[in-house]
Computed example of a mutant assay.
Amino acid sequence: MKRLKVLKSLVVAMIVFLGLSLTSCNNDRYEPVAVKLSDVNGNYKARLITSQGGKFNEKLIDFVAKDTIITFKDFPVREIVKTVVTDPVKADTALAHIAKIEYKLNYKSKLNVDQNVVELTFEPKTLVFQIPVDGVTKNAVVKMVAKQKGFFVGYDWSVRFGLEAEKITVDGVDLTPYQTIKYDIPISVKN
């Protein structure tokens, strides 16, 4: 009989303890850290998805956001070169001889407190570089556009945006026919 009372007392004590421990969970709510415009600044490693027509390519790239400029130290130009130089062997040879191409993307930022994001409105510049083919250097001018805003997301501290190579001009002549090349960065991680 004495053992039964002790056992009942232990069970009641455990139920009370569990009840009290679960009530403390009611106050655990996610409180997001409010973003500031300066939070965009930093070094990022990003997943880049490049698409043209039905072809997709995915790779990791790095970029730096500082003040109002995103800088790519090595902008991916593989699809552009393969569009200009249609022979795959010559295109690969040209890519091997092209140095890293730096591209700077200007943006304006605006704080969206309700969504806890910084909205990025881009002002792309043309991308200009040279492509060596069969001993001749071709001057490529690529008109870059951003049709949508980008975002710095406060939830995971990432930057998300997209660009398009809308038109390519080689030695003053527009490439025709031409399929737009899209550069999408659906997620990036701040280093």
Rank of each mutant, 00 (worst) to 15 (best):
T50M: 14
S51F: 00
Q52C: 04
Q52V: 10
K55E: 15
F56P: 04
F56K: 14
L60T: 12
L60K: 06
D62N: 15
D62R: 13
V64C: 06
V64I: 13
K66F: 05
D67F: 06
T68F: 11
I70M: 15
I70T: 13
K73I: 06
K73E: 01
D74H: 00
R78Q: 14
E79V: 04
I80K: 00
V81M: 02
T83E: 09
V84R: 08
V85G: 01
V85W: 06
D87A: 04
V89M: 06
D92N: 12
T93P: 03
A94R: 10
A96G: 00
A99H: 12
K100N: 15
E102M: 01
E102D: 01
Y103T: 08
K104C: 04
L105D: 14
N106Q: 13
K108M: 11
K108Q: 14
K108C: 04
V113F: 11
V113H: 11
T121W: 06
T121P: 03
T121L: 08
F122Y: 09
K125L: 11
L127P: 02
Q130D: 13
I131W: 03
I131N: 00
V133Q: 03
V133L: 06
V133P: 01
D134M: 05
K138L: 12
N139E: 03
A140H: 02
K143L: 05
K147D: 15
Q148E: 12
K149P: 03
G154Q: 11
D156H: 06
D156E: 12
D156R: 07
V159Y: 06
V159D: 01
G162C: 00
G162L: 08
L163P: 07
E164T: 09
A165V: 10
K167I: 05
I168K: 00
I168A: 06
T169F: 00
V170N: 03
D171N: 14
D174C: 11
Y178P: 09
Y178W: 06
I185N: 04
P186I: 06
I187F: 14
I187C: 01
I187R: 10
V189P: 01
K190W: 07
N191G: 06
